[in-house]
Nucleic acid binder design. Sequence first.
DNA 1: TACCGGTACACGGTATCACCGAGTACCGGT
DNA 2: ACCGGTACTCGGTGATACCGTGTACCGGTA
Lengths: 112, 112
Amino acid sequence: MGLAVDDLTEMLKGTLEGCVLEIISREETYGYAITRRLNDLGFTDVIDGTVYTILLRLERNQLVQVTKRPSEVGPPRKFYALTDAGRQNLATFWTKWRYVSSRIDKLKEGDA
Amino acid sequence: MGLAVDDLTEMLKGTLEGCVLEIISREETYGYAITRRLNDLGFTDVIDGTVYTILLRLERNQLVQVTKRPSEVGPPRKFYALTDAGRQNLATFWTKWRYVSSRIDKLKEGDA
DNA sequence: TACCGGTACACGGTATCACCGAGTACCGGT
DNA sequence: ACCGGTACTCGGTGATACCGTGTACCGGTA
């Protein structure tokens, strides 16, 4: 299960934001839940502060649209949904990911 | 061929150093050749200045051993070989890579 | 011999990113 | 009244790839 490799922070640079976009694309959701989702996915060390900085950046860059809604179990939540620019950005993220990961895998295989 | 997705720089953070280590592990080589190798692998925008900073960092962290040798076609070359610490570091790099890339792929697949 | 392009490395500064720490605030249960 | 869980904000840090410029070696050519 966990077994969690420690200190993935450098390797997550440039990809964590894309993961957050992907999560939002699936379903309108909010910061706290996104952090939990990432932790469940295996990124156990990703902390809420990191996710919120990403969300603020996404909002500033107009890749997401924000709707504040009250919660029954705590303070109000900010729900995020992708804008057209956000969907475009997510698409190019996956294109880049396919490109980079395939090249790295090829280097690992040795046949390159 | 290239088709090259532009501006992969953020996504390469945390992985480019590992790629350099892998290249060195295959064969004792030098900075200029490593840059060419990376370009051939598809990382067309990686420039020599970037590679040299990585090499200096590897040397400072004692992950590589350096041997200066004269060249017949230009100035002397600094040949790099992995130390034991370098081999160890490379192994954990690939472990991290397998871990991270599999989680991201799983997120993309949707079954997570 | 003077120049030029290819080879080869060094170094100061920049932007971006994930992370850290501390703070604010809402809510229910004991 | 307190405490733990929920939920978000913000200034600052460290690491990394990148950029620009500089230095220097070498062979070929006009």
